[in-house]
Amino acid sequence: MSEHTTNTAAVRLRPPAHRVSRRAIGYWTAMASISWIVVIGILTAIVVTSDDPPAFLTVALVVACVVGPLHLIVMPQWRYRVHRWEVTGEAVYTQSGWLKQEWRIAPISRIQTVDIERDPGEQLFRLAKITVTTASAAGPLRISGLAHDRALELADELTKTTQAARGDAT
């Protein structure tokens, strides 16, 4: 058995140890709020300006006014409890989602690139996301909701670890 096969066999899927930044709760709430404001605003404008609005639009507005706030209360907290990450000398572990949850693992020897991204909302909340690209057909691993400083440290750590790892990342 080759060394690469042995290292990969020793790595197993398990819950990652670290949570994302608590500021991610505010970020997720703000991003979802924008969507709900748009939906409720459009429905309200149609219902208020129509002489005889269809009943389904009025029902949709009422439902949006109930479901929207519930979503804003539940989703960010739930995501915070689920989203986790960990980097060891052997692998990168991620767990994400809230309704549909995903656990991923990438052996260090399979990592090809490490990228840091920050959209305007993440910049406002001092957050960043790391994308770890591997040779996997399942696509890259993403760690969202990291404090920006921690993301920089993690990218540096991953770069050093992958350079030291044996293997061809394919």
Rank of each mutant, 00 (worst) to 15 (best):
R166N: 08
A17E: 14
V87Y: 00
Q123W: 05
D51H: 10
D149R: 09
P15V: 14
G89R: 09
G167K: 03
T44K: 05
A137H: 05
R23Q: 14
I111N: 03
D119Q: 01
T44N: 13
I46G: 08
I105D: 00
R14N: 08
T162D: 01
V20N: 13
G68W: 09
L13H: 09
I130E: 05
I34L: 15
A155H: 08
A64P: 05
T88L: 03
I105T: 10
I73R: 02
G167S: 11
A128F: 06
S33A: 15
L72P: 07
V62A: 15
V63T: 10
I34G: 12
L99M: 09
G167H: 07
I143A: 00
Q95I: 00
W36P: 04
I42C: 13
A55M: 11
E86V: 03
T162V: 15
M1K: 07
Q112H: 10
H18W: 07
R23E: 12
V20H: 08
F125K: 04
I25L: 14
V67Q: 05
I111W: 00
A32Q: 14
W98C: 06
I143L: 05
T29E: 03
A64Q: 04
A106P: 03
A137V: 12
H148Q: 04
E102M: 02
T88F: 04
T161K: 13
S144R: 03
I73M: 13
S109M: 06
A137G: 12
L43R: 05
A32H: 11
A147C: 01
A138M: 04
I46S: 10
K129F: 01
R110Q: 09
N7W: 04
L141T: 04
T58H: 03
V66T: 11
R81Q: 10
A151G: 06
T113S: 11
K160G: 07
L72V: 11
T29W: 14
L141D: 08
E117G: 01
T5P: 01
H71M: 01
R118N: 12
R19G: 13
E117Y: 00
V62L: 14
V63W: 03
D168E: 12
V59S: 12
I143S: 00
I130S: 06
Y80M: 06
S136A: 15
T113G: 00
E117Q: 02
S136K: 03
T134N: 07
T49R: 13
S21I: 09
S33L: 15
P53M: 06
R150S: 12
A24K: 01
R84I: 06
G145Q: 07
A45Q: 13
G97R: 00
T134D: 10
T5K: 14
R142K: 09
E157Y: 03
A151S: 07
R166D: 12
A128T: 07
P140N: 04
V47S: 13
E157I: 01
L72Q: 04
S136W: 06
R142A: 12
T162L: 04
H83Y: 10
V74F: 15
A137I: 09
A64M: 05
G41L: 12
Q101N: 01
